[in-house]
Design a binder for these strands. Structure first.
Ligand SMILES: [Mn+2]
Ligand SMILES: [Mn+2]
Ligand SMILES: [Zn+2]
Ligand SMILES: [Zn+2]
Lengths: 153, 153
DNA sequence: ATCACTATTGCGACTCACTCTCAATTATTG
DNA sequence: CAATAATTGAGAGTGAGTCGCAATAGTGAT
């Protein structure tokens, strides 16, 4: 069942990403290290959007010697090549998610800190229109909606 | 010509804001200090979105003894009471703008660092719809479009 | 399997926006 | 003007993230 890349079920797109990691490394003369493999695997198995500290906590359970500096470095290089995405929500810390899933934006539940993904084609279209009307090409965008559970009435 | 609050022309909404500052201070038992008055005035005369350092630079031209710590503190208190707004764009530093203008979001020209304001009612509506469909009330949102000058063709 | 080469790692020192502490100053009320 | 307490300037402190460096370990060739 290829093409079925709905949500991140355990190990779903992991092999896919691991392959991409190998391609990328070969192409750029980078090395496929254990730490890169493990960090990327754990991130792609994470359904949430962990920050570096939390990601490191998860990584260390599997490979105790990996340092947090390596987590930061790995996120930086992999982001620069589009293998992962970095988000900075209201708390100001970087959070990461494995790339590969289709574009989406986020709802942030300010009470629980939970992050919900959504996609809205109309909004994506309107953005293009707005940028275009101002004479610009879009390079990227950031869109987060901060929410709380609806008040029952 | 009241009600005409299109752009921030020099001193336009300043008196308005200064009045609000005085009300706020009285109401909360805070003091109307020279530093607060000056910092708020200079911010409301700023058509751009300065960060603390830049704002401090402008403030110091008029009142050399005001410290940057006071700029930070003033931004924090005034933001908590809704007199100003804080934004954090891609560079990660806080930038400020005087409140009072109607809600808008921002285009950020990644080449010039210039910030352009825009308003899109459709997008604001769609947000409500999205939050609603997920069972949430909106607390706030952040929306920035990063752009560059359109490639001529 | 071994080697030479050099990218990567772990560690701890460092950076930089921003916050905090505290003694001195000043707005406010009467 | 005096009493009171909020605010300030200066500088120390905080914390997420980065950097320099010696040790380690992928990689491609032998
Ligand atoms: Mn996501
Ligand atoms: Mn603005
Ligand atoms: Zn989007
Ligand atoms: Zn908006």
């Amino acid at each position: 069942m290829p093409g079925d890349e709905k949500t991140q079920e355990a190990g779903g797109m992991t092999d896919n990403l691991e392959k991409k990691l190998e391609e990328l490394c070969k192409e750029k003369g980078m090395r496929v290290t254990e730490q890169r493999r493990i960090i990327l695997k754990i991130l792609s198995d994470s359904p949430d959007h962990p920050n570096a500290e939390e990601l490191h906590r998860r990584v260390v359970r599997l490979a105790p010697s990996i340092s947090i500096a390596t987590v930061y470095r790995t996120m930086n290089t992999l982001e620069s090549y589009g293998l992962i995405e970095r988000h900075i929500f209201a708390d100001g810390r970087a959070r990461y998610e494995a790339g590969g899933s289709e574009h989406h934006d986020h709802l942030v539940n300010v009470e629980t800190d939970e992050i919900i993904e959504f996609r809205c084609d109309e909004i994506e279209e309107l953005q293009k229109k707005i940028a275009d009307e101002h004479g610009f090409d879009i390079v990227g965008h950031r869109f987060e909606i901060y929410v709380r559970a609806k008040k029952r009435r």
